[in-house]
């Protein structure tokens, strides 16, 4: 399985409580988190989120003064066999596509799903969906 989803990135200062402050906004507005990934440096963090109501979430963050970015990423469900991730990464590398970052995504009944952001989203999507490495619908 492969699909496109909206990912939200939020800039957060690397200080105690700032992450909770951001997720407060989601909790208060009944927004459900499907996947969450925090990149953090010494100074700052980028919170990456996949939620059930992405556009509403962007508005809420903007209203509270946050720097927010929305962008398409893909979610893939590889076939549950050893070496399958390795094949997918080689497929992309062979086509000169760089993987910017990847993080797990959860769904009931699916053992392993992954969010992928790459240097060429469109081509990566085509390559993976035409491959036999992901579970077909």
């Amino acid at each position: 399985m492969i699909s496109k989803v909206k990912q939200i990135s939020v800039f957060i200062e690397n200080k105690v409580g700032h992450l909770a402050e951001a997720t407060d906004i989601l909790a208060k507005n009944n927004i459900n988190i499907r996947a969450l990934f925090v990149y953090d440096s010494k100074e700052y963090a980028i919170l990456r989120l996949i939620v059930d109501k992405p556009f509403e979430t962007v508005e809420l963050f903007r209203e509270s003064g946050k720097v927010v970015r929305i962008k398409d990423v893909m979610v893939i469900e590889p076939i549950d066999e050893p070496g399958m991730m390795n094949k997918i990464f080689h497929l992309l590398a062979a086509n000169n596509i760089n993987i910017d970052y990847a993080y797990p995504y959860a769904k009931a009944g699916a053992p392993y799903m992954l969010v992928l952001a790459t240097s060429d989203q469109e081509q990566a999507y085509q390559l993976i969906s035409n491959s036999e490495y992901v579970i077909s619908k």
Binding site: F11, V68, R69, D100
Partner: peptide
């Protein structure tokens, strides 16, 4: 202050800015 949201696409653009 960070104001340009396109910097959030990769952490390296923020490090670059610094």
């Amino acid at each position: 202050e960070v104001t340009d949201s396109s910097l959030l696409d990769s952490a390296s653009s923020l490090d670059n800015l610094i």
